[in-house]
């Protein structure tokens, strides 16, 4: 009995003593912080992807609170909605930015781009890129070892085991830009999602002259200028034998897709052609 009593007393005394110490320390060393940091951080997605250019979500929250306007700040993951919430918390105007999504600008699947040699090293794009131009004749195209897949924190990019090409899951892609930085061939680009996710882009980065490009890949952009002359909105420019569609000018009329001789221009999420004629008329 006595033993139980003494130990109870000692433990209770110890508990009280420690509690007092903890209380004192937490008061003494309390750092007065802007409470809005926490509020903003809570509103952010919490992925810490760094897509905004700040070290993690906390860093971005601090930047938001300290900034005068939210003009140059954007959370690519949360998009306009999150920025609106952040704006409400801080009483600042959040400028809506068009939501973006990553696209891989290479269409060189096995059928289009025959393999010329077998790579027998570490399956890592950067290592292969440092060594040589790649398994195919196209030195600009996708290597297919999945550095982008590794870089993506959201599981939005996957290498298709059949084509050995990366595919992007639009639902999951947050346009944080990690894959853009990871790709040694600089094939991945952030583009506007577009109305109803409809997008048109040149699915190639090959800057070779037409004949050489065509030889290495049957769906390469050959720089024939047809799309540039066809485009009614002057949204396409040609540089170094490679067409580029500016997504801010593109009106998604799809005329370029039709004229491209190598099918290097692709359209995404459009309804099939036949129904289009009707909508086109109404436009």
């Amino acid at each position: 009995m006595n033993v139980i009593l003494t130990s109870l007393i000692i433990l209770t005394a110890l508990a009280v003593l420690l509690a007092v110490m903890i209380f004192y320390v937490s008061k003494k060393f309390f750092i007065q912080e802007d409470p809005r940091y926490d509020e903003v951080e809570a509103a952010l997605p919490g992925a810490n992807c760094g897509g905004c250019g700040y070290p993690g979500c906390r860093g971005f929250a601090v930047a938001c609170v300290d900034a005068d306007t939210l003009e140059h700040l954007n959370c690519p993951v949360g998009g306009a909605e999150t920025m609106k919430v952040v704006g409400e918390i801080l009483g600042k105007e959040a400028t809506a930015k068009a939501p973006m999504v990553a696209v891989v600008r290479c269409g060189g699947t096995c059928e289009h781009r025959p393999r010329m040699n077998d790579y027998d090293g570490v399956e890592h794009c950067f290592i292969a890129h440092n060594l040589y131009s790649g398994e195919t004749g196209c030195s600009w195209g996708c290597l297919g070892f999945g550095d982008c897949e590794l870089a993506c924190d959201f599981g939005a990019i996957k290498i298709n085991p059949e084509t050995k090409m990366p595919e992007i899951d639009e639902e999951k892609c947050t346009a944080c830009g990690a894959c853009v930085r990871a790709c040694p061939k600089m094939l991945i680009e952030l583009r506007k999602i577009g109305p109803k996710s409809r997008r048109i882009y040149v699915n190639c980065r090959n800057k070779e002259k037409g004949a050489i490009a065509k030889k290495s890949c049957s769906t390469a952009c050959i720089g024939c200028n047809k799309c540039v002359t066809t485009c009614p909105h002057k949204a396409i420019t040609m540089g170094e034998n490679l067409a580029f569609i500016h997504d801010d000018k593109c009106k998604l009329c799809r005329k370029c897709v039709e004229v491209c001789p190598t099918n290097a221009i692709v359209e995404l999420n459009f309804p099939p052609r036949k129904t289009l004629t009707a909508t086109e008329k109404t436009e």
Binding site: R115, N117, D118, Y119, D120, G121, V122, Y132
Partner: peptide, 8 residues
């Protein structure tokens, strides 16, 4: 045949 490429 296709040749094998690997780093040294």
């Amino acid at each position: 045949d296709k040749l094998i490429i690997s780093p040294a």
